[in-house]
């Protein structure tokens, strides 16, 4: 089971980060960053499976490919923004974290524009 590995790595990493944080916080931050990346790398295979299943379902259901693509992109941007913001917040820079989150929201908004437009169009067609 992968969950054991993930939790094990997280526990060991947390202990090391706490040890380092007292003496040199700049390296502790980078260590916690690396731990996050490693855990994500372990999940890459599983996420790939989920994405493949979603695409399969979309194909079968005849959903417009544009929509699924956009959803995936939105998830990706949201994950990246969350990751970056979390690291900033860990380093005690709440202000920068907030800005990263805002950037993520704006970019997601921009990506979602085609879908919103499509919905609006459908609505307009429905209205007499």
């Amino acid at each position: 089971m992968e969950i054991f590995q993930v939790v094990g790595i997280a526990l060991i990493g947390v202990i090391l980060v706490v040890v380092l944080r007292r003496t040199n916080p700049e390296i502790a931050i980078q260590l916690s960053l690396i731990i996050g990346v490693i855990i994500f790398m372990m999940l890459v295979g599983s996420i790939g499976k989920v994405v493949a299943t979603l695409q399969n379902l979309a194909n079968r259901g005849g959903v417009n490919f544009l929509y699924l693509d956009t959803v995936l992109k939105v998830v990706g941007v949201a994950y990246l923004a969350e990751f970056g913001a979390q690291v900033c917040r860990d380093a005690g820079e709440g202000a920068i974290a907030t800005k990263v989150e805002m950037a993520g929201k704006v970019l997601i908004m921009v990506m979602a524009v085609p879908i919103i437009l499509a919905i609006l169009e459908i609505l307009l067609k429905l209205l007499p």
Partner: peptide
């Protein structure tokens, strides 16, 4: 390491 991470995210979510 972060470069690798970004590459993985990019390919996964087709960014």
């Amino acid at each position: 390491y972060i470069a690798k991470f970004f590459e993985a995210v990019r390919t996964m979510f087709q960014l």
